Amino acid sequence: MRIRSVAVVVRDERVLVIERRKDGRSYCVLPGGGVEAGEDLRAACRRELLEETGRDGHVGDLLDVPVESDTPAVYFTVRVSSAELSLGGPELQRASERNEYAPTWIAATSLDDVHLVPAEAVQAVRLVLRATSPSSEPLR
């Protein structure tokens, strides 16, 4: 089982997600994927972000989110310089009418209205939102 490296991107009070529609189910995930042999966690996070959204980013802090043993993942804060998105990489090749991937920005205020999975992803986003709110201290 490979560990996943996941990007938490918040920009202009919006969160970057991948809307998924697969076999009749609709949900959202954060950009990320499996770490390849010999690849470090931050490099994997950056590569996955680029493949899934067309955006390069600066990978920052590792977020303090519990690691789920069934699907181990690490979450990083990531800054991007542009909001423009485009799907690429393996997801573009796997996309079909029954398996859709759509990188998109959602309002941070609508986090509770989208089906973001897994629960650790929601926790990671909330940590970043808390850290970027005007009344909070910056992440260390």
Score class of each variant (00 low, 15 high):
Ala73Glu: 01
Asp40Trp: 00
Glu51Ser: 10
Arg4Asp: 14
Arg130Ala: 09
Glu100Arg: 15
Val114Cys: 03
Ser26Lys: 13
Gly38Thr: 10
Arg25Cys: 13
Arg126Ile: 07
Leu16Lys: 06
Ala102Lys: 14
Ala121Met: 02
Cys28Ala: 06
Gly89Val: 00
Glu48Gln: 08
Glu84Phe: 13
Ser81Arg: 09
Glu137Ser: 15
Val6Ala: 01
Ser96His: 10
Ala43Thr: 09
Ser135Asn: 14
Leu62Cys: 03
Leu41Asn: 04
Ala44Pro: 11
Thr53Ser: 01
His58Asn: 14
Val80Pro: 02
Lys22Phe: 13
Ala108Cys: 10
Ser86Phe: 12
Gly88Thr: 10
Val122Leu: 07
Ser135Asp: 12
Arg55Asn: 14
Arg21His: 12
Glu52Gly: 02
Thr77Arg: 04
Asp70Ser: 15
Leu111Trp: 02
Ser5Tyr: 06
Leu62Ser: 03
Ser96Trp: 06
Arg2Glu: 13
Gly24Ser: 08
Pro31Thr: 06
Val10Ile: 11
Pro138Lys: 14
Arg126Trp: 03
Arg79Ile: 07
Arg25Tyr: 13
Thr109Met: 09
Arg2Ile: 15
Arg42Val: 07
Leu50Ser: 14
Arg46Pro: 05
Lys22Ala: 12
Val9Cys: 00
Asp12Gly: 08
Leu116Phe: 08
Val114Arg: 04
Leu127Met: 07
Pro72Met: 09
Asp113Lys: 02
Val6Gly: 01
Ala95Glu: 13
Gly38Lys: 06
Arg25Gln: 12
Thr53Lys: 01
Val74His: 06
Val15Glu: 00
Ile18Asn: 05
Leu92Ala: 09
Gln123Ile: 01
His115Tyr: 12
Pro31Lys: 05
Ala102Met: 13
Thr71Asn: 13
Val122Trp: 02
Pro31His: 07
Val6Met: 03
Gly34Cys: 15
Asp56Phe: 06
